[in-house]
Design a protein around this nucleic acid. Structure first.
Lengths: 249, 249
DNA sequence: AGAATTATTTGAACACGTTTAAAAATCGTG
DNA sequence: CACGATTTTTAAACGTGTTCAAATAATTCT
């Protein structure tokens, strides 16, 4: 009955892994391979089991559902993305360049498996799904991603109004989610339209953020902060400052 | 093999309707009743057939799928919404009041069947779904709704930059879709949070629109117009002006 | 009215994701 | 090594949305 669980599967020498973990890994690789070849919906559990010389039941011993494979995929590509983003960001100090390179790193990491993301997008919409980026199951990845946004800000020349700054990592995260979403369903060749959108829209968003610092904007800023407070009641930054709070999100 | 189809089911005296149309209507009513009682996912095709004293196959003769029932539901509530919105709007000339009352009319019309909208929201995310508000199947309702936005603007005091004005109906439509979406999954009691969001955010959006008219804003507006042009290549207003264009959207 | 055509209904079957009880393989320990 | 406990695998089944060929009811035509 012991289900193997770990997000931090970066180390551990090969031989040490339990048999269960090794077959889970094998099933994962075969599954992704099949998904990419035939598409997620088109690939049957029976297909997967057969491709792995196992029974469907055995598959379910290792993964609680077909979608659970996507969860592992999402964790893996997140690791790659985080590395690539840090690497790409390190070359710049201007926020715009840093953030755009982060966004592009995200899309690049997803590039070969865009089809798979349709499943994630479908799930994204229903907060009850275990794959929903807003749900508790994705808390680790979500918060790690938001932290990455903070890194992107901290190493840059960006400055904003203090109160807005608190919400900035979450805001950038949402912005990125929106761009990923647009990209997944972007039918233009090589998803050119999304890249164009990022190129055009991002500087304007940044301009607005910078704008928040000049004093006269109180009348504009205050209602926006109210909205943010409503939509993001517990920003990560605030939670970090006062870890007393009950952090079930 | 003749499948009955009509969006404009407002008139036609009872007796005139074909038998097919009458049983389809009966199936629809029974289905919605069951969906509301037990939930969409929880209600089985066999449940529906049994409740209507029919076989599952007969159900599929009248509706191509379980989701197709939602399509009819969506059409019906759209009619109600359009009436309620026109009624509510007629009381105001200030754009803010007009638009907010339109939004509230939309939520009010959906109020009793919020659960059902989860299905629509799920489908909304996948542009390939027949229920996607962006797909060709929803073209009629989508364009009728966008026209309603234009009515909301036209009868009001709102004025914006000429070029922005072209995109305004589509923009308001997207804004409303976003609010509906937020509302569907809003877990706060009586969806208070969504109403609060509408109350806070809408005036700010309107302020931005009004802002576009003052001349100095060229540097801000121009990139935004570029983005709009990218995301909404063929705004409805423009299509109305030059009906030559091939209008497969 | 009777025959031919068409519209509607049936009930069994399909394919899918998933569950489950039991069998088989593996492991830990005397 | 052997034996009991645990982990892994199996094959059959469940419940789902949906399809389909055949049967029945309704309608149209002569």
């Amino acid at each position: 009955m012991t289900k193997p669980q770990h997000l931090d599967s970066t180390e551990e020498s090969k031989s040490k892994k339990s048999k269960s973990e090794r077959t889970a890994e094998r099933l994962y690789e075969i599954s992704i391979q099949q998904f990419l070849r035939r598409g997620f919906d088109e690939t049957t559990m029976r297909d997967l089991a057969q491709a792995a010389d196992l029974s469907p039941g055995a598959f379910y011993y290792h993964f609680p559902s077909k979608e659970a494979v996507i969860q592992r995929f999402y964790e893996r590509t997140f690791q790659q993305f985080a590395e690539a983003a840090r690497e790409a960001m390190s070359a710049h100090t201007r926020f715009e360049a840093r953030f755009i390179s982060l966004l592009e790193a995200r899309l690049a990491t997803f590039h070969e498996s865009r089809e798979l993301l349709i499943v994630l997008s479908r799930a994204a919409v229903d907060p009850r799904s275990t794959l929903s980026p807003f749900g508790p199951e994705q808390k680790l990845i979500r918060e790690a991603t938001i932290d990455l946004m903070r890194e992107c800000i901290d190493g840059s020349d960006l400055s904003a109004h203090k109160k807005l700054e608190t919400y900035l990592p979450e805001l950038l995260w949402m912005y990125m989610m929106g761009m990923i979403f647009y990209w997944v369903f972007d039918k233009s060749p090589a998803q050119k339209q999304t890249h164009e959108l990022i190129r055009l829209l991002t500087p304007q968003i940044i301009r607005l953020i910078r704008f928040s610092r000049i004093p006269l904007t109180g009348r504009v800023l205050q209602p926006i902060l109210q909205v943010l407070q409503l939509v993001i009641p517990e920003p990560l930054a605030a939670r970090r400052d006062s870890p007393k709070r009950n952090s079930r999100v």
